[in-house]
Design a protein around this nucleic acid. Sequence first.
DNA 1: CGCCAACATTACAGATCAGTAATGTTCTGA
DNA 2: TCAGAACATTACTGATCTGTAATGTTGGCG
Lengths: 226, 226
Amino acid sequence: MRILVVEDDKKIASFVAKGLKQAGFAVDVADNGEDGVEFGLANPYDAAVVDIMLPKLDGLAMIERWRARQLKMPVIILSAKRDVDDRIAGLQRGGDDYLTKPFSFSELLARLQAHLRRATRTAETTTLSLEDLSMNLVSREVTRSGQRIELQAREFSLLEYLLRNTGRVVSKTMILEHIWDYSFDPQTNVVDVLVCRLRNKIDRDFEPKLIHTLRGSGYSLRVEKK
Amino acid sequence: MRILVVEDDKKIASFVAKGLKQAGFAVDVADNGEDGVEFGLANPYDAAVVDIMLPKLDGLAMIERWRARQLKMPVIILSAKRDVDDRIAGLQRGGDDYLTKPFSFSELLARLQAHLRRATRTAETTTLSLEDLSMNLVSREVTRSGQRIELQAREFSLLEYLLRNTGRVVSKTMILEHIWDYSFDPQTNVVDVLVCRLRNKIDRDFEPKLIHTLRGSGYSLRVEKK
DNA sequence: CGCCAACATTACAGATCAGTAATGTTCTGA
DNA sequence: TCAGAACATTACTGATCTGTAATGTTGGCG
């Protein structure tokens, strides 16, 4: 989990950053609004903690720029302004939470975790990926190394199944059951053929190979670390 | 937008409920924890505002029951307990926000709206629906009145497009562009045929009809209110 | 080293899908 | 009321997809 802290008061910044690092987050700090905008756009943060009064560009304007660029991470505002009107302004201009200084670090952490928890609770996975391979389950786009790959319905299902079981071994019987619903006539080599077709599309022209055969047990999608 | 308020203090409950109604929300009120659990499970609320000290079942326990049952709506806790530890407990046990009494209604409203905004901002929609028709874009399941319907790829795209434009009129040219990518040979009646096929599947055996023809302008997905 | 099973690949064919076009129906305006 | 346009429906067909089966290749064990 990666957090961006934007705060110009060195003491507060290091206090917050240190605390978050101890809680297991990766933390970056920016000390003015413009850098804040840049950092946010350049890296995929899971959340941000920002002060309102910042040099160069104030916190609320910074948040608005993020939102305009489709950055959706939760943002917790820290501010010395205690007025209800200030809080409302902060929330209305794109903030997700508002804490007044002085604040308790424990509460900041608890609120941060609540927001992160919500984010994962809400997300019904819409993209799966491994290495440079990625598939969007909604748009049904599959790419490898940024290159678009067309998959047929069956191939798509198989890849989805493999991706959902990355690193694990899936037997032919398991594939049969998942792709063809019920326990299905296993006296033909449909699975072999399907795997072959999928391989031709996602592994043939790329490195490293992702689909691996485990003789006697099945297949596995992973990056070999030998 | 539908909000559930769980609060046993009549004055506060009606104060909050009235304010929310004026802000355009549909509001239900429960005055104890057990009813709160029931209400929450029985109706699809977009958010909840709850007190902690409640008769029969306290607010935090109520939230935990909701969460255990996969209810994911944002919950704002209202409480007279001002201690940091109480706030943290509230957030850790499934609350999304914590406001101490006395509170400003405007701030409650702003926080509520921030949470609702986030919910819609976050959701890369994975299911679309209208009336008793619903489609899950990930599992690709389409149902009407709970009954499973099989759609072909093209039909699926068309229905998705129509659902994303519920209530609006889409012209044949728009459909052509969206389903066949580029501006495509319009000297054939592919669209008519496709619409016909989709209709047979989702409208033929059901009421009310959802796909409507607007002679000369196109089609529209909606529930007619005549 | 050689055999056999497991797996990979290829070619084929039946089923399904999607576009065309012909025919039928409905609506609107003169 | 009638004609014509817009739309609906149906049947047909070429393309694509998917399962089958035959053939080729690989790897492990005796």
